[in-house]
Simulated assay, not measured.
Amino acid sequence: MTSPSLKDSALYLERLGYAAAPPPTLETLRQLVQRHTQTFSFETINTFLHLPVPVDLSSLERKLLHDGRGGYCYELNHLFLALLHHLGFDARALTGRVVMGGPEDAITARTHLVVLVTVDGAPYIADVGFGGMVPTAPLRLDTEAVQSTPHEPYRIIRQGEAFLLSAEVTGEWRAMYRFDLQPQELVDLEVGNWYVATHPDSSFRGRLTAARTGAGLRKTLQGNRFTVHRLGTPSEHHSLSSVDDIVAVLRNEFGIRVPAQPELRLAMERLLEREQQAA
Rank of each mutant, 00 (worst) to 15 (best):
S3A: 14
S5K: 15
S5D: 15
D8T: 09
L16T: 11
Y18C: 06
A21Q: 07
T28P: 03
V33Y: 07
T39D: 00
F40H: 04
F42M: 15
H50N: 05
V55P: 00
S59F: 04
R62M: 05
L65K: 08
L65C: 08
H66I: 07
G68L: 01
G68Q: 03
R69D: 09
C73T: 14
C73E: 01
E75Q: 05
N77R: 08
H78S: 15
F80L: 02
L81T: 12
L81P: 00
A82G: 03
A82H: 03
L83F: 11
H86W: 13
H86K: 00
G88P: 06
G96P: 07
V99A: 01
M100H: 05
G101M: 05
A106L: 10
T108S: 13
L116N: 06
T118F: 13
V119W: 10
D120K: 09
G121S: 08
G121E: 02
Y124C: 03
A126D: 11
A126K: 11
A126I: 12
D127Q: 10
F130L: 10
G131H: 07
G132W: 15
G132F: 06
T136K: 01
L139V: 03
L139T: 00
L141H: 13
D142L: 14
A145Q: 14
T149H: 06
P150R: 01
P150E: 01
P153W: 02
R155W: 01
I157L: 08
I157V: 10
R158F: 10
E161Y: 15
F163K: 00
S166E: 04
A167T: 05
V169D: 03
V169S: 06
W173I: 13
R174V: 12
M176R: 10
D180N: 14
L186I: 13
L189I: 11
V191L: 14
A197R: 04
T198A: 01
T198P: 00
H199M: 06
F204T: 13
R205D: 02
G206R: 12
G206M: 07
T209I: 14
A211G: 05
R212I: 15
T213Y: 10
A215E: 12
L217P: 12
R218M: 07
K219M: 10
L221T: 10
L221D: 13
G223Y: 09
R225C: 03
F226E: 02
T227D: 03
V228M: 00
G232R: 13
G232N: 15
S235T: 14
E236I: 13
H237D: 00
H238C: 13
L240Q: 02
S242G: 06
S242P: 02
D244R: 14
R251A: 12
R251P: 00
R251D: 01
E253D: 01
V258F: 07
A260C: 03
Q261R: 12
A267W: 07
M268N: 07
M268I: 13
L271H: 00
E275M: 10
